[in-house]
């Protein structure tokens, strides 16, 4: 267990944040399977969900190794309690309508893209490899979601109204993407990965013109700050986990 003894807890925290954000967003997107606005889009959303769950599996496996307690991806996904999850709060919010789902995909994918781009330089070789793979996926997710954001923002009066409402709802949660925490500082100092605050300029630079083309008004920043990445969640995560963890909790010791 040399890897484990060398691991700073911040390192583990950093990886868990990424893992859980991909996992919970993948879980939310999987709710769409069979219910999309048109079959083509149903298939597309499922592809994105599959990418995210794939990322989560790699990251959780890596987190399990860093933790050094022998927990695998499934023990981490299905047997941790709500406050032990480290995902960004935005991904646990209910899907809302298709517009809200796609806008969240866009905001998160644009953030993930910046992050994956920065991580190949990580001192953690396993994380760097996962990032290189995930970057390709995030680029496609950004493309897919940003096209839709523009389409729906610009489309009809109704779609514009819905997209603006979705933006107003989701925007405050994006502050969490970049809020400074001790984990960031320690991870950056140990060259695990960039402090997330450092990604804000690039993210804003990418998102602003897309929202503009979509004719959506960017809301002002408010004092609201969600703290899912520190394990303090919204009311929604508990319900999500109730379903997600149902079988593992109901039939302990099963093999699946």
């Amino acid at each position: 267990m040399t890897a484990a003894t060398q691991t700073h807890p911040a390192h583990l925290e950093y990886v868990l944040r990424l893992a859980d954000t991909s996992l919970i967003l993948g879980q939310r997107l999987s709710e769409w399977c069979g219910h999309g606005p048109v079959i083509e889009e149903d298939i597309a959303l499922t592809n994105i969900a599959l990418d995210l769950i794939g990322q989560a599996r790699l990251l959780l496996t890596h987190a399990g190794a860093l933790e050094g307690r022998g927990r695998d991806e499934d023990q981490l996904a299905f047997l941790r309690r709500e406050p032990e999850f480290r995902n960004l709060t935005i991904v646990e919010l209910p899907n809302g309508d298709f517009g809200q789902t796609i806008l969240r995909n866009y905001l998160v994918a644009a953030w993930q893209r910046e992050l994956w781009q920065a991580l190949p330089g990580s001192g953690d070789a396993a994380l760097a490899a996962i990032a290189a793979k995930s970057l390709k996926e995030a680029r496609y997710h950004v493309q897919h979601a940003s096209d839709w954001v523009v389409r729906l923002g610009d489309g009809t009066d109704e779609s514009h109204r819905r997209m603006q409402a979705a933006l107003d709802l989701l925007w405050p949660y994006t502050a969490e993407f970049f809020s400074a925490t001790p984990v960031d500082e320690a991870a950056a100092a140990a060259s695990v990965g960039p402090a997330w605050a450092s990604l804000e300029a690039a993210w804003t630079g990418a998102v602003t013109p897309v929202l503009e083309v979509a004719t959506l008004a960017m809301p002002a920043r408010t004092p609201f700050l969600s703290r899912g990445k520190a394990g303090v969640h919204s009311e929604h995560l508990g319900h999500l986990l109730t379903g997600m963890q149902h079988l593992q909790r109901t039939y302990p010791g099963g093999t699946w």
């Binding site: 083509e40 298939i43 597309a44 592809n47 096209d147």
Partner: peptide, 17 residues
């Protein structure tokens, strides 16, 4: 074949399906 409102999305839908 796929259904799509424009070429860009037709390509994406084809890629996804």
């Amino acid at each position: 074949s796929v259904h799509a409102p424009d070429a860009k999305m037709a390509l994406q839908n084809a890629r996804d399906a």
